[in-house]
Design a protein around this nucleic acid. Structure first.
Lengths: 185, 185
DNA sequence: CGAGGGGGAGAACGAGCGTTCTCCTCCTCG
DNA sequence: CGAGGAGGAGAACGCTCGTTCTCCCCCTCG
């Protein structure tokens, strides 16, 4: 098996298992079993579990933001794009196997114990917030709204995970529409 | 040492250690060392670590909501009370040792592995949401606003933890004021 | 005073797991 | 064909940790 392929399979397994069960609950041997990549190879590709965790979060970050952007950019109207963030969140919440925000979960689990993980989380959240801020700016709306929409999004993710419901996406979208109107006048 | 006192000391140690370091990172022996309660006694009081975790979350829930209520009820104006939720959050975020929402963290760490913990988290969040809803209703504002304020609060907690900043409380409070005004007209 | 038992200190046990090592297979290249 | 090395299977190692056990002290009560 090619080294690139092995890396990909390892990351696929890591994503599936870490996201569903949490990081500490998954052993390297579980990764081996699901990916079919031997332990020896795994440790060649990722010298420690922590590195695999970092790589998992990093790859997931790229994918997650890509899919968000795809969804948002289907809309032309810059104001509509801001609200479209919550369309994407609602869709995500409804996916089978949705289990909350991988970064928030990882932070709760390892933020205190692993600085590299904490860094990944901060970097992902900063990137997401920047993206929202950009959407808000393009719509000619004030910076403040960016912060507010970001907080609504974070709240929706957490709440959707804990209550196993998609409703928070709708509530957050409603709030966003009201806030936009309020800022417009 | 009286059995009531031992329970209290065990819970004090649990709260300090679990909240700061995460639950899985803390061993029963650490609880023993900090509380001064012997392992034998610990296991008499809490037949398994999971029970201690449940008790920790339960006691913290009572305290947390008490302190929120105290803060909110200093204000007479029912509308002001809604915003006062974020005054309390801001104060909390600034406390030394603030490390995010204990329930969100626990859910990220153990929600997938422990049904009792997941239940505690859901119950705490439901209680907090109900409290916000009650404040909103007393101010003669529509139910929808309750959901929105709740999401802002959750988002603020998560964001304050990850960025180690108190600013989210201010942003959420601003959003809430705008939403109240929007709902009033 | 002596038996009994509750409680403490800490060793012990058993499982899980991150990481490494051993041994074997098989492919490659001279 | 033969040497060498990469890679796989899985055992082994060492550590952590939840939980239990042993041994001892000391207080209580007859």
């Amino acid at each position: 098996m090619d080294s690139t392929v092995a890396t990909e399979r390892a990351l696929d397994a890591a994503e599936e298992l870490f996201y569903r069960n949490g990081i500490q609950a998954v052993g390297m041997d579980d990764i081996r079993a699901v990916s079919g990549v031997s332990l020896k190879r795994l440790y060649q590709l990722f010298p420690a579990k922590e590195r695999l965790v970092e790589a998992y979060l990093e790859r997931r970050d790229a994918h997650w933001r890509e899919r968000l952007a795809e969804h948002v950019e289907r809309h032309r109207d810059p104001e509509r794009r801001v609200v479209a963030v919550f369309d994407r969140l609602g869709e995500w919440f409804a996916e089978p196997g949705f289990n909350g925000c991988a970064w928030i979960n990882s932070y709760g689990e390892l933020g205190a114990a692993s600085e590299p993980v904490a860094r990944q989380v901060r970097s992902h959240k900063a990137a997401f917030k920047d993206y929202v801020a950009k959407l808000v700016a393009r719509a000619g709306l004030p910076v403040q709204l960016g912060e507010q929409v970001f907080l609504l999004a974070e709240g929706a993710m957490v709440s959707a995970a804990i209550t196993r419901s998609t409703a928070p996406a709708t509530h957050a979208a409603n709030a966003t529409r009201l806030l936009i109107a309020a800022h417009r006048r």
